[in-house]
C-alpha cells in the first residue's frame, strides 16, 4: 500500500548569495539556497535541490561577551576579523556572516565608513559570499548597511535585517546595489507575510528575500519558532507566494547566551562537561531548526558547525523517491 504523501503546489524560491566576476563581483562561487517542493529533507516525495548552508559568524570586534568555551577555538584570531574569516574558510566555510556589532553606540560606536572599510578588507581576504548583519534596526543600522551595500556593489551580499518599522532604506540599498535582504519578524506567520508584501510592493525582488523568523534558542522559545516555521513552510508549499522564501536562523547568538552553556561542571556535576554541553546546545538548536525548514544557519562554535554540516550531509543522502498517490491536507 502506498503511504499518504505530501504534494506541494508551490516551490520555495531560490535565493542566490554572492556575486561572481560574471555579476560584477569577486566571489569565487555563489551560494544558493531554497528551491524545495517538499518538507525539509523529504526528498522521497519532492525536490530539495539545494543543501542548507552554515554561515560562520565573524564579529567585527572582539566579542567580549562570548563565554570561555566559545572563545577557546578562536584564541589566535579573536581580535582580528580578517584573520578570523581566513580561519573559517580554511576550515571549510562556504559562507560568512560579518556581525557589525561594533557599530552600536554602546559597543564601540564605529562609523559607517569604518564598517564599510572592514567589509572591503574581508572581501579582499576571502572569496566566499557574505552576510552582513547590522547592529539592530534603526538609524545607525541603516547608515552602516547602506555604506556596506555601496562598498560591495556586485558582491550580492545578504543584508540583515529589515523589520516592519524600518525596511525601506534597506530595500532601497538592496535594489540600488543588487543585494539580498533578510526580513525579520517576531515568530508570527502573518507578520512575516506582511513584511514580505511590504518589501515586494517596493519592487524588491521576492527571490532576494530571506525570512528571519527570529528564533529563540533551545529551551528559550525554540518551541514557538519551530512551529511557526513549520506553519510558514506548509503555507508556502501550499501555494502562498508571499511566504515562499528560504529561512535564516541566527542559531549561534541565541544558543550561546543561555545559562545552560555557561554553568561549570563544578557547580552542577550532573550536567556533565561544560564545553561539550555548550556545543551540543548549539547543535541541538540547529538540528531542530533544520527539520523545521532552515536554509541558512548562522553559527559560532567550529565543533558545532562540523557536526551540523555532517548532519546535513546525512539528511541529504539519496533516498528513493516514492510515487505519490494520496494527497495530504495541508496547513
Amino acid at each position: 500500500m502506498t503511504a499518504p504523501s505530501f504534494r506541494a503546489s508551490g516551490r520555495i524560491r531560490t535565493v542566490r548569495i554572492g556575486g561572481t566576476p560574471a555579476d560584477g563581483g569577486s566571489r569565487g562561487e555563489a551560494v544558493e539556497v531554497g528551491g524545495e517542493t517538499c518538507l525539509p529533507f523529504h526528498r522521497f516525495e519532492g525536490e530539495m535541490p539545494l543543501r542548507p548552508v552554515v554561515a560562520w559568524e565573524i564579529p567585527d570586534s572582539t566579542p567580549v561577551d562570548w563565554c570561555e568555551t566559545l572563545r577557546e577555538p578562536y584564541a589566535g584570531v579573536f581580535d582580528d576579523p580578517v584573520a578570523w574569516a581566513r580561519f573559517a574558510v580554511e576550515r571549510g566555510a562556504r559562507l560568512l556572516c560579518l556581525d557589525l556589532r561594533g557599530a552600536a553606540a554602546d559597543k564601540g560606536n564605529r562609523s559607517a565608513a569604518e564598517s564599510a572599510d572592514l567589509l572591503r578588507r574581508l572581501l579582499g581576504a576571502v572569496k566566499v559570499p557574505l552576510i552582513v548583519k547590522g547592529p539592530g534596526p534603526g538609524e545607525r543600522q541603516n547608515e552602516v548597511l547602506t555604506a556596506c551595500a555601496e562598498a560591495a556593489q556586485g558582491e550580492r551580499l545578504l543584508l540583515a535585517s529589515a523589520v516592519e518599522e524600518e525596511y525601506k532604506t534597506l530595500v532601497a540599498a538592496g535594489v540600488a546595489f543588487g543585494h539580498a535582504v533578510t526580513a525579520e519578524t517576531p515568530i508570527d506567520v502573518n507578520l512575516c507575510k506582511q513584511l514580505n508584501i511590504l518589501m515586494t510592493d517596493l519592487h524588491f525582488p521576492p527571490d532576494s528575500i530571506v525570512i528571519d523568523p527570529l528564533t529563540g534558542g533551545l529551551g528559550y522559545g525554540l518551541e514557538y519558532t519551530y512551529s511557526v516555521m513549520e506553519r510558514i513552510r506548509l503555507q508556502a508549499l501550499g501555494g502562498d507566494e508571499m511566504l515562499q522564501m528560504p529561512f535564516i536562523c541566527f542559531v549561534g547568538a541565541e544558543s550561546w547566551k543561555v545559562k545552560e552553556v555557561k554553568v561549570p561542571e563544578e557547580r552542577e556535576p550532573s550536567w556533565g562537561d561544560r564545553a561539550r554541553r555548550g556545543v551540543l546546545w548549539e547543535i541541538t538548536t540547529a538540528v531542530s531548526l533544520l527539520h523545521a525548514g532552515a536554509a541558512v544557519l548562522v553559527m559560532r562554535h567550529p565543533a558545532a558547525i562540523a557536526a551540523v554540516e555532517k548532519a546535513i550531509d546525512g539528511l541529504m543522502e539519496g533516498t528513493e523517491p516514492q510515487r505519490a498517490q494520496r494527497t495530504l491536507r495541508m496547513g
Binding site: L218, L222, E223, E260, W271, G272, W281
Partner: peptide, 14 residues
C-alpha cells in the same frame, strides 16, 4: 554521556 542529557531533554520538553 552526561553532557548530552540536558540539551536532549530540553529539546524534548520544547
Amino acid at each position: 554521556e552526561p553532557w548530552q542529557y540536558l540539551p536532549l531533554l530540553t529539546l524534548r520538553q520544547n
